[in-house]
Design a protein around this nucleic acid. Sequence first.
RNA 1: GUGAGUGUAGCUCAAGGGUUAGAGCACCGGACUGUGGAUCCGGUGGUUGGGGGUUCGAAUCCCCUCACUCACCCCA
Length: 426
Amino acid sequence: MSGEQGKKVISAIKGTKDILPSEVRLWQIAEATAREIFELYGYRELRAPVIEPTELFERGTGASSDIVTKEMYTFTDKGGRSITLRPEYTPSVVRAIIEHRLDLQPQPLRFYYIGPMFRYDRPQKGRYRQFHQIDIEVFGEKDPAIDAEILEMAHRLLSSLGVTGVFTLVNSVGCKKCRPAYGQKLREAALAVKEQLCPDCQRKSELNPLRIFDCKVESCRALAAGFPRITDFLCEECREHFKKFREYLDLYGISYRVEPTLVRGLDYYTKTAFEIVTEEAGAQNAICGGGRYDDMVREFGGPDLCGIGFAMGVERLLSVARIKVPERSFVYFAYLGEEAKKESLKLARNLRSEGIECLVEFKERKMKDHFSRANKLGAEWVLIVGEDELRKGKFQLKDMTKARQFEGSLIELASIIKGKKILETG
RNA sequence: GUGAGUGUAGCUCAAGGGUUAGAGCACCGGACUGUGGAUCCGGUGGUUGGGGGUUCGAAUCCCCUCACUCACCCCA
């Protein structure tokens, strides 16, 4: 042992972090709320692996997308396969549908999932290399009512978690019938002013002119303002879909803004695209993004099954959520002596069977120290087990929040604890 | 991948070339005789992110590097 090795502290990988117990309650509540709401709309959880064949994302997410070209965690496994830690969830669901012939089940199919995604990006506020998404997908429903319904569901989740100050942006990016014609017009417009665009946009004007709308350079924005708008080029079907979609949004009372320049970064979107943004989250202000992808399943060699979905970033969501964490309620055992310690262990065992959280610490303490300790740990109850109590078979129970004290048998005290719990949680 | 800012105890911060780097909070122990939050006393804890340089002397000045933070890019 050189001694030098022991000094080196190992820390979490850049862009990843531990979620410690003090914070994890927020995650649990957010996740439980999401599950509850999604199930309410008929969604069921579908859990896919964290690792997938690299090809899944190259074909699904899009070979020209930034995610695939520079942000994937890709490695070769011992069998020589190219494996990728999923950067998003949609392709995995599509794969699962085709693999298990889920399209033969009654449609539409509604799935949800909550879990980690991985992108090799430079971390900043609201952006991490391992981050978490709440994801929902619907397959086999063409009706624009579903487009509005998933947005309504997203808003229900947000308001349940106390998120305020959000705004919804919607757009239609057309379909394979009308988008190429528009793309051509846009490219022409972009190339006409190419010299005046920033270097990045010059590149985009060839590759994917839609993305020029995302540019934040002022001169590019000014030029892009004069470019043709997708909404003026939609085919009959897309225009009708977009119109109905907005009608249903109005029906749900969801306020939104049509943003003809809204471009989802993934290549597969068709028709509806949307984003929910917040004012108070820094530069990464999109907490939810999604859209329709009617061609993806077929392009993977599956049935002709349309799809739509959204993803919410859990870290971003929690950064703007106002979640009330209920106080934990537990019984601290203040015992005196070995005999009382043993009795406490038995009592705790029985109370736990009643669903009551108990903490028996094994260190001998004086009564005052027990209370001091109970207070520090935030115990709601202190159960006193001393000589008198052992003799009588009745125990003292102190309510630490109200400074009341009861005497009774274990059963009597258990019902006091449970009675208060019911009173407080309703 | 590019740019800027910041790195001193678990946390928040002092010390800005000159003894052995300090404080508050937290943690541990003690005083307080079977009833908590207070108070008082004491203690643990740092190669000042790491490496190199300048200097008689570096937490302090210079260079490199790493990490964190924010922004660009992209996106949840």
